[in-house]
């Protein structure tokens, strides 16, 4: 009786092992945005799903419908409980997800971040759009490139973005202000204003800004609402084309302003490629690949990428293997000549 039981037990174990391996081949990866319903994130999701189809794995794009940390935690827990192999998330909070991510990692789920990072202890890789240094410099460069004599006569510039608590936008602006102080001492920063992702305020605030400083040369707007809002304000006041409006937003929102010449150049990164890269790396890790700082590889549709240490983003912590930052190979400056090549 006892022997029979153990036989059955062994058979069951073997079966389970087989089932296990068969299951492992069915890779499932979740791709979580800060919130659904925003063109930027939806496009990242499209890229992620497209890469999943290309690799023949299952990629699920889903997340909270409002920007809520507890909503993201729910999604993380759900995906973990459903047996997903990896999760790539654009974190709403640098620390608020720690416990949920820790639990996920304990259960063997591979965690990556994209677009917005968490503490590097709680993820493998951060798929980054660029360092704060790169993006801050890009902001200043886009404004300077539109001036006849950027280093000549005195200039007045202002910043307009969502809110002082948004980590990434704040970091870019800090760098941009430093670059201005070092390279363009003739630029005076007259104000920094916020519109809190409220479209109506994103028009009102720059309107007041333009009127309070009629001799403003440029407004730099690294936010998806602030940039079209500022462009709209310039058009309403009839000063479109006379003042430089630049920053970061998505091509679909900015297309009409670029076509009318209100905005001559603005930047972003290709978020579709960012989604693709995140899924590609996640799949490598699920397959058991080990990546070290300094490793380089080619990603179809994205290009040549390299594993950088966490220190490029200013972190102290550095894991030995499968930990670091992978930067998108390039950022994009959109102008009237190339904007129609992008749809997101």
């Amino acid at each position: 009786m006892r022997k029979k039981f153990s036989l059955v037990f062994v058979a069951a174990l073997i079966l389970a092992a087989f089932a296990g391996t068969a299951f492992a081949k069915d890779v499932k990866i979740a791709f979580i945005p800060k919130l659904t319903g925003v063109g930027f994130f939806e496009s990242g999701g499209k890229g992620a799903v497209a890469m999943g189809n290309m690799l023949g794995i299952k990629v699920k794009y889903d997340g909270p419908s409002t920007a809520s940390v507890s909503g993201q935690i729910e999604y993380i827990n759900n995906f973990v409980n459903q047996g997903y192999d990896a999760i790539a998330i654009s974190a709403l909070s640098p620390d608020g997800l720690n416990q949920a991510l820790k639990r996920a990692m304990k259960k063997g789920v591979i965690i990556l971040t994209w677009d917005s990072d968490v503490n590097p202890r709680y993820r493998t890789f951060y798929i980054s759009q660029g360092t704060a240094q790169q993006l801050g410099e890009l902001l200043v460069k886009m404004a300077a490139d539109q001036m006849d004599d950027p280093k000549g006569s005195p200039k007045k510039v202002a910043f307009h973005y969502s809110s002082p608590t948004v980590t990434d936008q704040n970091q870019w602006v800090v760098v941009a202000k430093k670059v201005i102080a070092e390279q363009y001492p003739n630029w005076e920063i007259v104000d920094t204003v916020f519109s809190h992702e409220d479209a109506q305020k994103a028009v009102q605030v720059p309107t007041a800004l333009f009127q309070a400083h009629p001799d403003l040369d440029a407004v730099i707007c690294p936010d998806a609402n602030a940039l079209p809002g500022t462009a709209q304000a310039a058009e309403n006041l009839g000063i479109a084309g006379k003042v430089i409006v630049t920053g970061f937003s998505t091509p679909n929102v900015m297309r009409p302003y670029v076509k009318r010449g209100t905005v001559k150049a603005f930047g972003l990164w290709d978020v579709v490629k960012q989604g693709k890269l995140a899924i590609y790396v996640a799949n490598l890790l699920v397959q058991g690949k080990q990546l070290h700082v300094g490793d380089e590889f080619d990603v179809p549709d994205v290009g040549h990428v390299k594993v950088s240490p966490n220190s490029v983003q200013g972190y102290d912590y550095q894991g030995e293997v499968n930990n670091g930052i992978i930067l998108l190979p390039e950022r994009v400056v959109f102008t009237i000549d190339n904007i129609d090549d992008y749809d997101f």
Binding site: P164, D191, T192, V193, F194, Q204, V205, A208
Partner: peptide, 19 residues
């Protein structure tokens, strides 16, 4: 309620103080 936000910009109050 709307005017306050514009006035603060004319007054040069830093945007952080707005709300």
């Amino acid at each position: 309620l709307t005017a306050v936000h514009s006035m603060l910009i004319f007054l040069g109050v830093p945007g952080i103080w707005d709300n």
